[in-house]
């Protein structure tokens, strides 16, 4: 039931904005065109940052270095009580959004969505974001290249999320 909630959110939001705008006697079409134009300009502004980060991630995947990183971190994960089966997901999650969805799909298929592994994987995917992409896009848009402590803080939160997702499933489910 709740899983289908998402289907209604977007149309409801769009409807709400249009009705509210008409009620306030706004020229909603003019406003839309102006906002859309700004959106187009912004997209071109973030283009260099997105091309840089997506190309680098693609190379990292193709070279096999990402898979090697996963293997490297497997013993560390086992040490901190994190299921080793989920190391690939934990490493790929902050780097690639579509990549992590593919890994999650595989985990759910292999272990079942209601198994311990399947649940931890779902919680991890649902409670974290694609950190590298978000940082590249947002700072790229503001033309910031010196991001200071943003990445270390974001990654420590991802790391905490990874450990906590296993703990939360043990505790709450």
């Amino acid at each position: 039931m709740l899983a289908k909630f998402g289907v209604f959110v977007i149309p409801a939001v769009l409807l709400g904005i249009v009705v509210f705008g008409l009620a306030k006697r706004i020229n909603i079409y003019d406003a839309f065109l102006e906002g859309a134009k700004e959106g187009a300009i912004t997209t071109f502004q973030i283009m260099p940052a997105i091309i840089a980060i997506l190309t680098a991630i693609g190379m990292l995947k193709a070279s096999g270095a990402l898979a090697a990183l996963v293997q490297l971190f497997e013993p560390v994960c086992r040490l901190i009580g994190f299921p080793a089966e989920l190391t690939p997901l934990a490493i790929i999650r902050p780097i690639s959004g579509s990549g992590s969805l593919a890994v999650l799909e595989q985990v759910l298929g292999d272990y079942g969505p209601d198994s311990f592994i399947g649940r931890v994987a779902s919680v991890m995917q649902g409670s974290t974001e694609t950190t590298f992409y978000t940082i590249a896009v947002y700072f790229g848009a503001a033309q910031i290249t010196k991001t200071r402590y943003a990445l270390p803080c974001a990654l420590s939160a991802d790391f905490a999320g990874m450990i906590l997702s296993a703990a939360a499933v043990r505790l709450l489910m």
Partner: peptide, 20 residues
């Protein structure tokens, strides 16, 4: 992304002008 940037940029502008 360009598509959704334009769509949401447009609707955001409506919401902004209407005070939402």
């Amino acid at each position: 992304l360009l598509g959704s940037m334009c769509l949401w940029g447009g609707f955001l502008k409506i919401a902004e002008r209407s005070g939402l």
